[in-house]
Design a protein around this nucleic acid. Structure first.
Lengths: 200, 200
DNA sequence: GCCTTGATTGAACGATCAATCAAGTCGCTT
DNA sequence: AAGCGACTTGATTGATCGTTCAATCAAGGC
């Protein structure tokens, strides 16, 4: 594995475990088994390592997140909840210390340079776009007048908020209740969609 | 104003502006016009300043947040949206750099000591408890079988997720769309509550 | 076999970090 | 007036931060 990749992987893990500011360059160096000179040969600085990590997350959303979450799931709406179930698994596996890598960075970095901010936004947009596609694929359960993109953003909101509360309270039940509320929302939307169709 | 209060206020502002890790003790000292010896006379360390800030936020939720947000608003459900409107104002006033003080800290601190974690959780709980009270006060618009506490947590989720996305995209519209979705959720709940009542 | 090139090494730099401490000031009690 | 404890002062500590750099190395072209 080449130096750059080793650095990005190590940094990705560390940023996720301890955040950007709490991760020192020497942390990255020791985990990736790279010397400081090599890191600064590949990257201009620590900030650029972060950019590399965000690019890797963006480019890996399908292979690392969506594809495994949707294995064996065909129904578009159930895909949404399968994705949420995957986050739930991460929460449980980390004893409720899990935080969404993007969400955590988005709130931690208070003065991100434009490139970093744009990459965070891009990561969110890719996520919601995938959800929006699911929504488009289930017209019989989502009323036609509902903004699919906005509803997808609402799903992201629920995930991020659920993760945040589960972590803060160290209790998955908080995540579960948010998902249950979202499920109720979709159930009510389905009822309305059926009604709309019958009326037409 | 006494030393302790000056420190807590300065630290509160700084933690909100730049986060906990990015705020140095000397940042706090210069803003509060206190010398390092005095700070360490009042607080054992930086971590304890954070505890002081979280306690102040917890104790000030009514005077600093709820009371001004609910001025002139009587309807319990509208109180919820009035609170969200207050967050919206904060977002706009800060050019979409606003982050919820608690939410930001909750995601930034990856290994909070138990006391800090408990205070973060307490801050969330107080917030949701206030919302839950509003929900209890509007039985005709919330179906009886809906868990009010869980729905209150869902409102918190929406706020935190909306703030996070508005900040990341530097665009209030993301917050507005989340609030719109939440409004739709409440509208559908109200319809269901009316139906339940008619059936009984 | 020499030279170029790009990657790697690890010691070192100045800055900044959280925290300490001896010395000093002030108000209150006796 | 003297003494005492609470609080303040600001220089100082050692550790750690992100970053730099001269030196070394391996591989390919000529």
């Amino acid at each position: 594995m080449d130096t750059r990749t080793r650095i990005v992987i190590a940094a990705m893990e560390l940023f996720w475990e301890k955040g950007f500011n709490s991760t020192s360059v020497s942390d990255i160096l020791s985990r990736s088994q790279v010397n400081s000179g090599s890191l600064y040969h590949v990257f201009p600085g620590k900030q650029d390592v972060l950019i590399g990590v965000l690019e890797a997350l963006r480019d890996g959303i399908w292979d690392m997140l969506l594809s495994p979450a949707w294995e064996g799931v065909d129904d578009p709406i159930e895909k949404i909840f399968a994705l949420l179930a995957r986050y739930r698994r991460s929460i449980v596996e980390t004893d409720c210390t899990y935080g969404c890598p993007i969400g955590s960075l988005a709130l931690e970095l208070h003065e991100p340079d434009p490139k970093v901010r744009a990459l965070l936004a891009q990561n969110f947009t890719n996520w919601t776009a995938a959800i929006a596609e699911c929504l488009e694929a289930a017209p019989e359960r989502v009323p036609a007048d509902v903004d699919k993109a906005a509803l997808a953003e609402f799903v992201l909101t629920a995930m991020e908020g659920g993760v945040m509360q589960a972590r803060t309270h160290r209790d998955v039940a908080y995540f579960d209740r948010v998902v249950a509320m979202l499920r109720a929302h979709f159930d009510m939307l389905a009822v309305k969609a059926r009604g709309d169709l019958a009326a037409a």
